[in-house]
Computed example of a mutant assay.
Amino acid sequence: MVNQEVDTTGCGIATFANACSISSFEHARGWMLDRSFCKQNEFVTIPQMKSALELWTGKTITQHNSISSLSDEAVLFVEYEKGTSYRHWVYYKNGIYFDPLPWYSQGVSTIAYKVTRLLNIHS
C-alpha cells in the first residue's frame, strides 16, 4: 500500500497509486505532475482523478454521488472532518478501504468518513 508522505496533502496521489498498482508515491506523483493531473501542492480534483485513472488503466470510470452506487473497485472522495471543507481520497476494492494517511499500513473493512463522490472503476 502506498501512503501519502505527510498527513496534510498527497492523498489523491497515493490513492491513485493504490488504484493503479504503482509501487511508489514518487512515481505516481511524477506521472501525475507531468500530465497536469495534480498541482505542485499535490491537490487532485475529481475531474483530474477521473481522467488520470482512465488514461493509466484504460478502464471506464463512472462518477456517482452516493455510496449506494459503490462497485467492487472505486476511488472515494470523502468529507475528512464532519462539517468542514476538508476532503480526502480513499481507495476501495472488494470490501476493503485503503486510507493513504501515513499511519495506516493496511486496508480496513469500514471507514467513518462521509462519501461525497465516488469514481467506480469498471473492468
Score class of each variant (00 low, 15 high):
residue 3 N to F: 09
residue 103 W to Y: 14
residue 24 S to Y: 12
residue 16 F to S: 06
residue 85 S to N: 13
residue 120 N to G: 11
residue 15 T to M: 02
residue 93 K to G: 10
residue 65 N to S: 13
residue 76 L to R: 05
residue 34 D to R: 13
residue 69 S to H: 11
residue 26 E to I: 02
residue 51 S to V: 00
residue 56 W to E: 10
residue 18 N to K: 02
residue 119 L to P: 03
residue 113 Y to R: 04
residue 61 I to T: 02
residue 68 S to P: 01
residue 51 S to Y: 11
residue 39 K to A: 15
residue 68 S to E: 14
residue 66 S to W: 07
residue 112 A to Y: 11
residue 98 F to A: 05
residue 48 Q to W: 02
residue 42 E to G: 02
residue 19 A to E: 03
residue 71 S to L: 04
residue 31 W to G: 09
residue 45 T to R: 09
residue 44 V to I: 05
residue 36 S to I: 01
residue 28 A to M: 04
residue 43 F to E: 05
residue 12 G to P: 01
residue 56 W to T: 00
residue 83 G to L: 05
residue 79 E to A: 08
residue 2 V to D: 08
residue 120 N to D: 08
residue 94 N to Y: 09
residue 37 F to I: 00
residue 112 A to W: 04
residue 68 S to W: 03
residue 58 G to K: 05
residue 83 G to A: 11
residue 83 G to I: 01
residue 117 R to H: 12
residue 103 W to V: 03
residue 83 G to W: 10
residue 108 V to S: 06
residue 92 Y to H: 08
residue 85 S to I: 03
residue 60 T to H: 12
residue 100 P to E: 03
residue 53 L to Y: 04
residue 57 T to A: 11
residue 26 E to G: 09
residue 65 N to A: 13
residue 83 G to F: 14
residue 14 A to Q: 02
residue 36 S to P: 01
residue 77 F to V: 00
residue 73 E to Y: 13
residue 100 P to M: 07
residue 61 I to L: 09
residue 72 D to G: 10
residue 16 F to R: 01
residue 59 K to R: 08
residue 103 W to L: 07
residue 42 E to A: 09
residue 105 S to H: 13
residue 73 E to M: 15
residue 121 I to C: 10
residue 22 I to C: 14
residue 37 F to K: 02
residue 30 G to K: 15
residue 66 S to C: 11
residue 85 S to R: 03
residue 111 I to N: 07
residue 85 S to Q: 08
residue 118 L to V: 02
residue 64 H to N: 15
residue 116 T to R: 09
residue 113 Y to F: 15
residue 70 L to T: 02
residue 78 V to E: 02
residue 30 G to Q: 15
residue 123 S to T: 05
residue 16 F to W: 06
residue 58 G to Q: 05
residue 68 S to I: 03
residue 54 E to L: 03
residue 113 Y to C: 04
residue 40 Q to I: 04
residue 119 L to R: 04
residue 25 F to Y: 15
residue 1 M to P: 06
residue 64 H to V: 00
residue 102 P to W: 13
residue 36 S to D: 13
residue 27 H to K: 10
residue 69 S to Q: 11
residue 73 E to G: 13
residue 41 N to G: 10
residue 107 G to L: 08
residue 89 W to C: 02
residue 96 I to W: 08
residue 29 R to P: 02
residue 62 T to C: 07
residue 103 W to C: 05
residue 25 F to S: 05
